[in-house]
Nucleic acid binder design. Structure first.
Length: 302
DNA sequence: ATACCTTTGAAGCCC
DNA sequence: GGGCTTCAAAGGTAT
């Protein structure tokens, strides 16, 4: 089922408009060094989130992956719209051959999927109800602020159920310490520009494309992200910058390192396969990582 | 119950 | 400094 949905996403990707300026305007942000940028004041953030809106809650039609007779490729190709074939065995440098993927399905207006299943039922053009991005709402997590509430970066750790008193007596000091550690709320990393974009657009994509699986949705969002204009992306880079700034002010001693190793990996080797050296392509092999597009100076609002 | 998948970007680590 | 790794979100799927 999972793979089926990935195939669906593949179909969508095949027809989503190629990035207009792909490779021309990535927006690497200069790192926000703690030493160079001491927290002086809490940024005025609330207006920044005015633009966040959530999509109309549509009833999703039957999952497109369940449709019969839809030919699907073996694997999700790279977002570039190219198939890649990588060869090379142990001790060999991979040799990657890429060629344009054939258009398998006709385009649809929004997602590029074939129109042989129901389109989203929401009235087209219906205004999306606005909401304020929960992260960074002014006062959020700021002690003493009237609207003070836990910053979304803080999440209770998923500690196991409390032991009964009898069991507690059996615990060693080390156990107790470990438990205390586990109960400490985890401070999450601040969201980067793309994460903020995903958070905003996810529901819209779900409504438009009638997908549910996040992996498939994220592929679409990744492509759309590249299709955004420089100015549109800059908006999210700026939000992310503010997010990092606020995060730094709220948790001065926090480091991303604090959360390292908190996610247990089932098979480290397998994970490495999928993160370094590229993702599996349509043939289940690992193509070379696409060259990073040329950087550009992000619009900075100071 | 929890890791995996999938995306990009930021940050940490190692050489 | 460059390259690799980890983790942020999300929710269906796999283990």
């Amino acid at each position: 089922m999972y793979k089926e949905s990935v195939y669906s996403a593949f179909n969508l990707l095949m027809h989503y408009p190629a990035p207009s300026g792909a490779g021309q305007h990535p927006q690497p942000q200069p790192p926000l060094h703690k030493a160079s940028q001491p927290p002086h004041s809490v940024p005025q953030l609330s207006p920044l989130y005015e633009h966040f809106s959530s999509p109309h809650p549509t009833q999703a039609p039957a999952d497109i992956s369940q449709k019969q007779g839809v030919h699907r490729p073996l694997q999700t190709p790279e977002l570039s719209g190219f198939y890649s074939l990588t060869s090379g065995g142990m001790g060999q440098l991979p040799h990657t051959v890429s060629w344009p993927s054939p258009p398998l399905y006709p385009l649809s207006p929004s997602c590029g999927y074939r129109q042989h299943f129901p389109a989203p039922t929401a009235a087209p053009g219906a205004p999306y109800p606005r909401f304020t991005h929960p992260s960074l709402v002014l006062g959020s997590g700021v002690p003493g602020h009237p609207a003070a509430m836990p910053h979304p970066a803080i999440v209770p750790s998923s500690g196991k159920q409390d032991l009964q008193p009898y069991d507690r007596s059996l615990k060693t000091q080390a156990d107790s310490k470990a438990e205390k550690e586990a109960k400490k709320p985890t401070i999450k990393k601040p969201l980067n520009a793309f994460m903020l974009y995903m958070k905003e657009m996810r529901a819209k994509v779900i409504a438009e494309c009638t997908l549910k699986e996040s992996a498939a949705i994220n592929q679409i969002l990744g492509r759309r992200w590249h299709a955004l204009s420089r100015e549109e992306q800059a908006k999210y880079y700026e939000l992310a910058r503010k997010e990092r700034q606020l995060h730094m002010q709220l948790y001065p001693g926090w480091s991303a390192r604090d959360n390292y190793g908190k996610k247990k990996r089932r098979s480290r080797e397998k994970h490495q396969e999928s993160t370094s050296g590229g993702k599996r392509n349509a043939f289940g092999t690992y193509p070379e990582k696409a060259a990073a597009p040329a950087p550009f100076l992000p619009m900075t609002v100071l």
